[in-house]
């Protein structure tokens, strides 16, 4: 009983900690468009060196991908941008992306953020705004 209450108290503390928020947008915290562009550039390089993921980009116009993905990240981070690219369903239709390939690409994206020195806590917040796109991409 005492142990149960102790457990609940600790969880409550975590919850309270979670509610302490900052007013700056994630975009500003990340370091604006320059940092986003750096992440996208790193991400493209990670893909180039990954034999499993690179084939998905065989017919991709990399300049266009770079521009549109940067726009998308800017929007996810509440930055001053509009996304003008195609829908995720359009882009990934017919690719039959597996769960493992999707997660591998997430890993490449995390590496891209690591190499751009994006702090772990900001990485998590950015990824949390991207997870909803998974169901638009998997096994399509």
């Amino acid at each position: 009983m005492v142990k149960g209450l102790l457990f609940i108290a600790v969880c409550g503390l975590l919850f309270v900690t979670g509610c302490v928020s900052r007013s700056e947008t994630l975009y500003v915290q990340l370091g604006g468009q320059a940092k986003i562009d750096e992440v996208v550039k790193n991400f493209v390089r990670e893909i180039e060196f990954n034999n499993e993921i690179l084939p998905f980009f065989a017919d991709t116009n990399i300049d266009r991908f770079t521009e549109k993905f940067a726009q998308q990240l800017c929007v996810f981070a509440d930055g001053p941008c509009d996304y003008t690219g195609d829908s995720m369903e359009q882009v990934h239709g017919g690719m039959h992306i597996t769960e493992a390939q999707f997660n591998l690409t997430v890993d490449l994206f995390i590496t891209a953020m690591d190499k751009a020195n994006v702090p772990h806590r900001l990485q998590n917040q950015l990824i949390s705004r991207m997870t909803f796109t998974r169901k638009q991409m998997l096994y399509k």
């Binding site: 969880c11 975590l14 900690t17 979670g18 302490v20 702090p119 772990h120 806590r121 900001l122 998590n124 917040q125 990824i127 949390s128 997870t131």
Partner: peptide
């Protein structure tokens, strides 16, 4: 898992 919810850290329950 809730991403980034505890001062930016991921929470699992």
């Amino acid at each position: 898992v809730h991403l980034g919810v505890v001062a930016g850290y991921n929470l699992v329950w």
